[in-house]
């Protein structure tokens, strides 16, 4: 389990988080959403120990993340948005270099994922497109057998079929008890995949709730008129989509983009609703 307690972090004089608390129990796919510059990538870096918090703690299975103990690093993999790859190496060589450090690395799974994502493991990185490089790294990261998988904008550069394959692969991983945290702007790519959803704002966590809890508290109404009591309304083909407080207990289909906008525009109301 990943636990963040009373954590504050700033880049020199620019505060990013102020006294935030979060926990990520195992076996779910967490969606980490937020506007540009709110600290999504920074939070992922703090979790895997690449950044040291100014105050508070971040632990992974009880180990302080910034200590970057080998035991902790064996349990966590972080795939940043941009990675410097050895041009002349192949994905197979890349994982072969990493494999000795990860006791649960599965070569069979790596080859299977490469096949599913349609990338040749013996092709050099420099001969690949950005999307193919990204797919190779996804396959490599997922085959290391770590309990925690942290992905920063993983669908950037993936083509449409690959996005579907990516979702299906991650769903299987979560079923096996892995904890996956995805930071992304491309919410459509991970809709129906991420649950719970964490929305960050400057200095704070605006929302940390499961999809079930969100749809219990909020109602997503499609195809009607714009409503005055709506937390957020958006004109879509076929009518307005409204996000309103769920007073009837009726179920609705979550729209993450609408949720995100509703949360950003009604910070206090959302806080009260979910407290």
């Amino acid at each position: 389990m990943i636990e963040i307690k009373n954590l504050s972090f700033s880049y020199k004089k620019t505060p990013v988080f102020s006294n935030i608390n979060l926990s990520f129990p195992q076996g779910a796919i967490y969606g980490l959403l937020g506007e540009n510059g709110v600290g999504k990538t920074t939070l992922l870096k703090i979790i895997c120990g690449l950044q040291r918090p100014n105050e508070g703690t971040c632990t992974v299975d009880g180990m302080t993340s910034h200590d970057r103990l080998p035991e902790m690093l064996q349990r966590i993999v972080f795939l940043p948005d941009e990675v410097m790859l050895p041009d002349n190496a192949t994905p197979q060589q890349y994982v072969s270099e990493l494999a000795p450090f990860y006791p649960s690395f599965a070569q069979g799974l790596f080859l299977h994922l490469m096949q599913e994502l349609e990338v040749e493991p013996a092709r050099k990185f420099k001969e690949m497109s950005f999307g193919q490089q990204k797919k190779s790294l996804i396959a490599a990261s997922l085959s290391l057998g770590t309990d925690y998988i942290l992905l920063d904008e993983p669908t950037n550069g993936l083509d449409i079929p690959s996005k579907a394959q990516f979702r299906s692969i991650l769903s299987k991983m979560a079923d096996e008890g892995k904890t996956i945290i995805i930071s992304t702007h491309q919410v459509k790519d991970v809709e129906n995949l991420i649950d719970p959803i964490v929305i960050l704002s400057h200095n704070a966590v605006l929302l940390d709730a499961s999809v079930q809890m969100i749809t219990e508290k909020l109602f997503f109404e499609y195809g009607g008129e714009a409503r005055e009591d709506a937390l957020y309304s958006e004109l879509l083909p076929g009518g307005y989509m409204n996000v309103i407080p769920n007073t009837t207990g009726e179920e609705s289909q979550l729209n993450i983009e609408a949720l995100f906008n509703a949360v950003l525009r009604n910070k206090n109301t959302i806080k009260e609703l979910f407290s």
């Binding site: 895997c48 120990g49 690449l50 970057r68 080998p70 035991e71 064996q74 972080f78 450090f101 990860y102």
Partner: peptide
């Protein structure tokens, strides 16, 4: 690359101690 912020992540995340 190991000492650079952007490129050193691979090195920093390798499961070995900082001392090693």
């Amino acid at each position: 690359n190991a000492g650079k912020k952007k490129t050193g992540i691979y090195f920093a995340m390798l499961p070995a101690s900082k001392w090693e």
